[in-house]
């Protein structure tokens, strides 16, 4: 019997789950309407203006708003009950910093609250599919994605990836195509070619001007790599496949979340990660953290990818 199956998620997947959410800055009544920052996010069409005074939400339920702190500075309050994000006026946002905050902190948490698997990962296109990289902060997710991009593999994201399980695989979509790297990475990979950097917002990374390069579109995910600490690898480059249960654990650890008190949300999270882990192979990846080794790492990934394709051949 002929059957039709949706393989690609809609072109604007973030609008629906974000509908009904409002954003505001704390500010003085006299400043209402004074625009301090405006960011139109490419995936959401959200605009952020200083246009309202935010009242504290009346909490009728048991939930509490999430306060996100950067050191002793309150960055934003995300209230899932009233579906409102409040940013304190004292956190002065440049457009770049605001974009970073919205893309990498706020929207991922909202998507996760709305039951869209949202993970802290970088990702690039490799062949016809995507590969994603996760690991603890500072392990090199953005640097590896940047190196892959310089080698000709289109960037999906350097920080945040949504994953949608389908019957026979997983669709990966980058939340934003910006690339933020540490200054030493920028110097090593981009400076000589006259590529421009800009402020990326905290915590000290530089935003690489991609000169209008479009992000890779959503597509099937081929593999996830968990970057191992450098001291484990010596000079060797190696990747080992994790068991599905181990893979699920890594996915849970690298998921964005805000509803940490909610048993329902946790049940959804573990179920979602289990679905993904059952459909996509997850590997560890160990390699020396030297810029001159990155071409070998890329070659390793390309070779494994080709082996994977050969293994699937009829």
């Amino acid at each position: 019997m002929p059957q039709i199956q949706d393989l690609i998620v809609g072109t604007a997947p973030y609008r629906e789950p974000l509908a009904g959410w409002s954003f505001g800055f704390d500010c003085d009544p006299g400043q209402i309407g004074a625009e301090v920052a405006r960011v139109t996010h490419p995936a959401t069409d959200f605009s952020f203006r200083r246009h309202e005074i935010t009242a504290e939400a009346a909490h009728k339920g048991a939930t509490e708003p999430i306060s996100c702190w950067d050191g002793d500075v309150l960055r934003f309050v995300l209230d899932t009950w009233s579906r409102h994000v409040r940013m304190p006026d004292h956190f002065r946002h440049s457009p770049a910093a605001l974009d970073h905050l919205v893309s990498d902190d706020i929207i991922p948490r909202i998507l996760s609250h709305e039951r869209i698997a949202t993970l802290h990962m970088s990702a690039v296109r490799l062949g016809g599919a995507a590969v994603a990289f996760c690991g603890r902060s500072g392990q090199g997710k953005s640097t590896l994605a940047a190196a892959m991009m310089r080698a000709g593999h289109a960037l999906l994201t350097d920080d945040c990836l949504t994953l949608t399980p389908l019957a026979d695989g997983v669709i990966a979509r980058g939340l934003s195509a910006s690339l933020r790297v540490w200054p030493q990475t920028f110097e090593a990979m981009f400076a000589e070619d006259g590529i421009v950097s800009g402020e990326a917002g905290p915590p000290g990374k530089l935003r690489v001007d991609l000169d209008g390069d479009a992000a890779a579109e959503a597509g099937p995910l081929d593999a996830i790599y968990v970057l191992q600490p450098a001291q484990d690898s010596g000079d060797e480059i190696k990747s080992l496949r994790l068991s599905p249960a181990e893979a699920c654990g890594h996915l849970v650890r690298n998921s964005f979340g805000i509803d940490l008190w909610s048993a329902d949300w946790k049940a959804w999270l573990i179920g979602s990660c289990a679905e993904i882990a059952a459909r996509v192979p997850v590997f560890t990846l160990s390699y020396p953290r030297r810029f001159d080794c990155l071409p070998k790492v890329i070659d390793h990934l390309e070779t494994r990818h080709m082996d994977s394709l050969a293994g699937r051949a009829p």
């Binding site: 599905p244 249960a245 893979a247 654990g249 849970v252 179920g271 289990a274 882990a277 059952a278």
Partner: peptide, 8 residues
């Protein structure tokens, strides 16, 4: 939750 033939 079942993950393949394993469990989390």
């Amino acid at each position: 939750r079942t993950v393949g033939e394993e469990m989390v």
